[in-house]
Nucleic acid binder design. Structure first.
Lengths: 343, 343
DNA sequence: GCAGAGAATGACATCGTTGTCCGGACCCCG
DNA sequence: CGGGGTCCGGACAACGATGTCATTCTCTGC
């Protein structure tokens, strides 16, 4: 910037004014400065600017997700990026992999980078550390899972409702023995979805059978094994509610191997690409990661812009998508290819 | 940091030394400083540090991908993150959406943030602008697609080879009329995959039929329509090679609607989750986005560390995964469910 | 006892930028 | 012609940190 000032024969400050589009600079000087900028390929350093500026904005936000490589996190990330782009803000991301230590470590790293705000899908049981770790007035928005020990807006899917709807859907199709398979019970979404399942059963006057409830299934393979085990025992379920993507995949695989995919009903939580192309196509309770990401980003920017109303909770509704697998009735014994055509 | 120095009754410089783990500080002072840091919840500002430091490293790299929300980009992103994390480097990402203007805009934004390097899947026809836009000595690595007009390492899938292998696989199963469906021809990967297809045909002594070649199919719907059109014409293909993910999805959908999914062979370029659960399961030429991301990040960090050997090309091999759809022979008229069990 | 080496510490300038403040030029009006 | 505002432009300090260099202190060896 010094070089530009020299080349344009003006003071440093005038260059700064031109770059920042401030008023009260004569058109002549503006032109001089602009051409000097062009000539020297000057590019302002937003980091240095942030350092000096009174608002201290870095125009960067941090996004901590379970795994930027998985479809849910990736869609959410994209939605956040789109909101951020509209404001000229850049996004720093990090993957947590269900590891609380990583959560803290990344929160720390982003603090040292002075991000203007933080959107996070927490994995640890408590985010109280943010109070000391974070710079004061750095807003935090929790997404997908609620945070604890630190105030912040929260953006959540209607997990209990969605799981209840899935379960009621199966009940309405005549099922009474419905299994519920989910991820680690320390994950709040897994707990809540199981809760929704239990509530729907009780509502229908059915006492839940603990042998039909599987948790701690973190990979498709674990889910697959669990399902196979389930059907090797007496009195197996006639329907499955799988409360997470990989569990759904494992269950589909298991039902195939057992030759039960047209006999046992299945509703999964969270949609996935090609779900409509499987046979039978998979009925799911779809979340909306795009709306979740957008909502979280909008909430964060409102806070960054100074909104200091009490933390709000945003509930993003889920949608039941009927595709076939969830509409199988108990006692069905199709072996042909009829369902495929009935889409 | 000033406050810490005051609290610990030492000079600013001594605090800096402790924070940066420099030697030659007496243990007594180190302890004093550390407790002051603890007491005041001091967190160093890496931005300010980068400004003053002679190497000017911000410990951030930029990653420009097609769309961080799509599975390929997301996996690649994750792999880059893992390499970066090992070095304490953060990753700024941006989605390009096939828009050259966005490519420039984001390259500019990242330059203003002084990222230490840039990994990019270019969409524009020329990256010559980087020469003036970018800070000198900022290394660039091109991934997925080659860059033009600016030197940089390149990490590419073996597109021609992979497409050739897919096509030869279909030829080996007796197909002679094989369609090739792909994305916008301005995308280099689309062109190269078509090239591989053409080469394999010619190698087999077959003159390509232009009516069997579809390009500019950017969405699943466009691909679906194209396939349906293909089969409404006389002399339709007996096999399809779909050179991109969404095109594969569209083709599967179209074949289903036409009732041809067990009759017409299909090989797709790029794997996708659940491909093994479709009926028939989809044979694909799989890319390896994780290896691509890792390779790109490693190459970038080598450059950041000062390697100045001439730009290198890294070829990441593709793998043909036989699952069923690619092994259908011409003239097959299965209507039952046999293939599903034959996995 | 003393030179010289080396360790420990601090003073100060500086990175690229913006906030503050001041001064000069210009205009309008009485 | 002078008073008082508006408009422009620059000098200077400061943001939070580190590089450089000078200073003090403590040994070591003879």
């Amino acid at each position: 910037m010094n070089d530009v000032a020299r080349a344009a024969r003006v003071s440093l400050k005038t260059v700064s004014r031109v770059v920042n589009g401030e008023e009260n600079v004569s058109p002549v000087l503006v032109a001089q400065v602009r051409s000097a900028i062009e000539l020297l390929n000057y590019s302002p350093d937003v980091g240095a600017g942030a350092l000096r500026r009174s608002d201290r904005r870095t125009e960067m936000i941090a996004l901590l997700l379970e795994d930027v490589g998985n479809p849910f996190s990736a869609s959410l990330h994209r939605a956040v990026e789109d909101e951020a782009r509209a404001r000229g803000v850049q996004v720093l991301t990090g993957s947590l992999d269900e590891c609380p230590a990583r959560e803290r470590e990344l929160a720390r790293a982003f603090t040292m980078r002075r991000t203007d705000g933080l959107i996070m899908a927490p994995v640890g049981p408590d985010q109280g550390y943010l109070a000391t770790e974070l710079r004061v007035d750095t807003p935090v928005v929790f997404v997908d899972r609620p945070g604890a020990g630190f105030p912040g807006d929260t953006v959540l899917a209607t997990n209990v409702l969605g799981a209840g709807e899935a379960t009621r859907h199966l009940l309405a199709h005549g099922h009474r023995r419905i299994a519920c398979l989910g991820d680690y019970s320390r994950i709040s979404t897994a707990r809540l979805r199981q809760e929704g399942y239990l509530a729907a059963l009780r509502e229908a006057g059915i006492e839940p059978d603990p042998r039909l409830i599987g948790s701690e299934l973190h990979t498709a393979l674990m889910a697959e094994c669990k399902v196979i085990e389930l059907f090797h025992r007496p009195d197996p379920p006639t329907a499955l509610f799988t409360s997470q993507n990989l569990v759904t995949a494992g269950a589909v695989r298991a039902l195939r191997r057992l030759g039960l995919h047209r006999t046992v009903a299945l509703v999964g939580f969270d949609d996935f690409p090609m779900a409509d192309l499987l046979e039978p196509a998979i009925t799911v309770v779809a979340q909306d990661p795009v709306v979740m990401g957008r909502t979280a980003a909008q909430a964060l920017f409102r806070r960054i812009d100074g909104d200091s109303t009490p933390p709000a909770e945003h509930w993003i509704p889920t949608t039941l998508i009927r595709r076939g697998s969830g509409e199988i009735r108990p006692g069905t014994h199709t072996t042909g290819d009829r369902l495929a055509g009935s889409l």
